[in-house]
Amino acid sequence: MDGYVKFRPAPAGRGTLVIARVLYRPPGGAAARAVAKMLGKDPKFMMRQDLRRFKALIETGEIPTIDGQTHGPRSVATAAMRLADPDRPIRGDAEMREILNAKRRIA
């Protein structure tokens, strides 16, 4: 892994631009990359999420989260997905596929 992070003043006192460039070749080639995307572990998407969390932490002093909040009984499928990947927004069935497609497009 290689890369850099730049901090640059934004125009007209609008804060700081943070630019991150990370060179990372995930192991396993194209097939592994496709699987990683399906699981929400696409490196570009994860990088973007990290930057958002960093921005939130710097601006607000904390990283917004619902992890640990009280909730009603989850379905078995939801509970399993949450357990497998706590970072992933919870959703089963067709809507989750729709959202994963969105994530792939953004990434």
Binding site: Q49, R53, P64, P89, E98, I99, I106
Partner: peptide
């Protein structure tokens, strides 16, 4: 800052509101 799932809203609404 208040909606870490902004990317889901962007897909469905075009842009994301707050949490």
């Amino acid at each position: 800052n208040s909606n870490p799932n902004y990317w889901m809203a962007e897909k469905l609404l075009g842009s994301s509101p707050s949490g």
